[in-house]
Simulated assay, not measured.
Amino acid sequence: MTAPEAAHAGEPHGAGLGQRLNWLRAGVLGANDGIVSVASLVVGVAGATTDNAALLVAGLAGLVGGAISMALGEYVSVSSQRDSERALIDKERHELRTMPEDELAELTQLYRARGLSEQTAQQVARELTEHDALAAHLEVELGIDQHDLVNPWHAAISSAVSFTIGALLPLLAILLPPPDWRVPVTFAAVLVALAATGAISARVGGAPALRASARLVVGGAAALLVTWLIGTLLGTTGVV
């Protein structure tokens, strides 16, 4: 293997990249949502009562309902995206069948816009058209790989599983410690977990990790504080 080949050996090229990014994105978002939503729920309940049964019921209800909601939302969203991609592919296939010369000229101009000379752009467009016209147009015009469309089931399952894993953290943190330590331990565990998921999501998207983690930590801390204050207020006034 040559030096350039070795340098690029670990890069995420080829078929399946879109699928991997799809389920990874859904997984990170699901875990983050599971952590924040269930933590806010159980911390709010803990502010009102120390009853283990109430905390367990609230946490499990939030976990199950949230996991189902996340899975359904991802499935609907990604299904819509997949339907749109399929419609664009069908449209491009029809145009190639009914007006091939216009499509060849269009592909040539797209390569010209990328900096190729007129002669080189014509040659590249013609050779790619002879090899696989549809794939060439989908890639250059739309950025779509017809063999690597997003999968709604992958996104739904990844989101549900990651939400459940994320939700288990605050649920265990609120149930296992003694009553006086429940809220502080949950706060600490949740903020550390949010910092980690922020760093992971930033790495996936190529963004600065510190900024992404800080946003999640500040937002999560605010959500926990508000729900705890509401629960404490309701418990003090005897509403619950």
Rank of each mutant, 00 (worst) to 15 (best):
R211D: 08
A160Y: 04
T197L: 11
L176M: 10
V185A: 14
R215I: 12
A189Y: 08
A160V: 06
S201K: 14
L168A: 05
A209I: 05
P170T: 13
L194S: 02
Q146T: 06
A188G: 05
V150R: 14
G198Q: 08
A156W: 00
G143R: 06
G205T: 07
H154R: 15
G166C: 02
G198F: 08
L171D: 12
F163T: 10
Q146E: 15
A199G: 05
V190A: 01
R203K: 13
P152N: 05
E139P: 00
R211F: 04
I157Y: 05
A199H: 04
P178M: 12
A214C: 03
G206W: 12
I174Y: 07
F163V: 08
V190F: 00
A160K: 09
G205P: 00
A214Y: 03
A199Y: 03
V140F: 10
V140D: 06
L171S: 13
P184M: 14
I174Q: 06
A212S: 15
V190Y: 00
D145P: 02
S201G: 12
D148T: 11
A212Q: 14
V150D: 03
T186H: 06
H147M: 10
A156Y: 00
A195C: 07
V140E: 13
E141N: 03
D180I: 02
L172W: 06
I157T: 14
L175V: 11
I200K: 01
S159N: 07
D180S: 12
A195G: 15
L210I: 14
P184V: 15
F163Q: 09
P178A: 15
F163D: 08
P178Y: 07
G143P: 05
A209V: 11
A214T: 11
L216I: 08
A189L: 15
A196D: 00
V192A: 14
A207F: 02
E139T: 11
I174P: 00
T197Q: 01
D145E: 13
R211H: 12
I165L: 06
L216F: 04
I174C: 03
A189R: 06
I200M: 11
A167V: 01
T164F: 02
P177T: 11
I200W: 07
L176S: 02
R182V: 05
